[in-house]
Amino acid sequence: MLPLTELEERIGYEFTDKKLLRRAVTHRSFAQEHNERLEFLGDSVLNCVIGYALFLRDKHFNEGELSRVRANLVCEGTLFEIATRIDISSFLFMGEGEIKTGGAHRPSILADAMEAIFGAVFREAGFETAQRVILHLYEPILTALTPEKMSKDPKTRLQELLQGEHLPRPEYAIVNTTGAAHERSFECECRIHSLNIVTTGKAASRRAAEQAAAETALALVKERSK
């Protein structure tokens, strides 16, 4: 495990309260003081920061298009991409059982840790500092965000990537549904058999859950291609 001072360098912010950063990278399998509340906070801040960045960047996109692109940028797949780039797994505090089952490299856990870090920065230093940290980490993604990419959803981009490598298209399936009819939550699975990749996504609709699963799968395919 690397020292948290190294993580501070990678995110571009030095914490005054070191315990706050430690909590942000502590999984619930390790201690009662874990990162889930910070994750909740970070998710809200992230949505606001990315939404505002898109609002300023592309004035020709309407509300629906901006909402879809924002959803793609704040989803598990994109957060996993950032977490992998700065190697969040080297800083996580996790229980032995979770480590043995590969939790330190599970997209959902790494994405949650990124949101918790954003929440911790906001908690200590306020919105403007959290905004700076988020935009710094998102800079390569936002820079590469062409109008063409903004117009295509994750399922389309994943299918095109696989077709370009002459691989079969992914398969999608609902693996779980919860909640009453008026507040239903779907969990969908994306399988790429040829690459032995299986990802999941959760959302209030089947389509959105499939898109979330596709976004995570897309990040994994790109990571393998490096």
Score class of each variant (00 low, 15 high):
residue 30 F to E: 06
residue 37 R to K: 12
residue 170 P to G: 00
residue 12 G to I: 05
residue 181 A to L: 10
residue 14 E to L: 12
residue 65 E to W: 12
residue 210 E to H: 05
residue 18 K to Q: 14
residue 204 A to D: 14
residue 126 G to Y: 11
residue 41 L to A: 10
residue 123 R to D: 11
residue 136 H to Y: 11
residue 220 L to E: 12
residue 67 S to A: 15
residue 110 L to T: 01
residue 210 E to T: 04
residue 173 A to L: 13
residue 104 A to T: 02
residue 221 V to Q: 10
residue 63 E to A: 13
residue 20 L to Y: 09
residue 149 K to H: 10
residue 193 H to I: 14
residue 28 R to S: 05
residue 3 P to D: 11
residue 132 R to M: 06
residue 124 E to I: 09
residue 144 A to P: 00
residue 226 K to C: 05
residue 26 T to Q: 00
residue 18 K to L: 05
residue 206 R to T: 15
residue 3 P to Q: 08
residue 38 L to V: 07
residue 64 G to I: 07
residue 31 A to D: 14
residue 53 A to H: 13
residue 79 L to Y: 03
residue 67 S to M: 11
residue 66 L to I: 13
residue 106 R to S: 05
residue 46 L to G: 01
residue 80 F to E: 06
residue 118 F to T: 02
residue 101 T to M: 09
residue 217 A to F: 10
residue 32 Q to E: 10
residue 168 P to T: 03
residue 40 F to G: 03
residue 1 M to F: 01
residue 216 T to A: 12
residue 4 L to G: 06
residue 178 T to Y: 11
residue 35 N to G: 10
residue 206 R to K: 15
residue 127 F to S: 05
residue 2 L to E: 00
residue 76 E to F: 01
residue 56 L to Q: 13
residue 120 A to K: 02
residue 111 A to D: 01
residue 89 S to M: 03
